[in-house]
């Protein structure tokens, strides 16, 4: 199996971005590691070379390294290659420049990541608006140090309420249980 077109993309990245590390992951997949401040120019550069579908932004919380990894997914319809641009920013007070000037849809993904991982995107005006979580004033829930099991037990188990329900005879109808 030849990986020619993938190699071509790697060379394309390396030609202009010497500090970037790029490798072919497998057929039609290319990974690129860059510094946070080089993401914007790299995406702009790739957009100029046919990578005109901005798929998504995803995030990974590497809690032991104290870093959050942001992954920008780009796809080229002509080359049929998927490029993942990975960058790491500090967990605490980390921020990234917004990609909105390049791709409008980046705004939505940035709001999503801001809400669930607490990453700040500079220049995104809608960031402070409520997006998915309503009336949420806790820590960002997708971070690794947020204890979702504890939160669920505290708020949704409500064992005291269940005994209260028993006392008030608030029980669903039980006559249908098969003998």
């Amino acid at each position: 199996m030849s990986l020619e077109k993938e190699q071509k993309v790697v060379e394309l990245v390396k030609a202009s971005f010497e500090d970037a590390e790029a490798e072919v992951q497998r057929e039609r997949r290319v990974k690129v590691w860059v510094k946070p401040n080089r993401v914007f120019p790299l995406v702009a550069y790739l957009k100029g070379h046919g990578f005109n579908h901005f798929v998504a932004i995803s995030a990974v919380d590497w809690i032991k390294d104290g870093e959050i990894e942001l992954v920008y997914h780009l796809w080229s319809y002509s080359e049929k290659v998927h490029v993942m641009i990975k960058t790491r920013i500090p967990r605490d007070n980390g921020s990234m420049p917004t990609l909105k000037p390049l791709f409008n849809q980046a705004e939505t993904y940035e709001r999503d990541i801001h809400e669930f991982f607490g990453v700040y995107f500079e220049g995104n005006e809608k960031l402070d608006r409520e997006f998915i979580l309503e009336d949420w004033d806790g820590p960002p829930p997708m971070r690794k140090d947020f204890d979702t099991r504890l939160f669920s037990a505290e708020f949704y188990d409500q064992e005291d309420l269940e005994s209260e329900a028993l006392r008030l005879k608030i029980q669903p109808y039980k006559g249908h249980l098969r003998k």
Partner: peptide
Amino acid sequence: DSYNTIKRLDLYIPVDL
């Protein structure tokens, strides 16, 4: 164990079945 999903419905509205 989801942080955002309720467990017992009949604590919030009365369930018949």
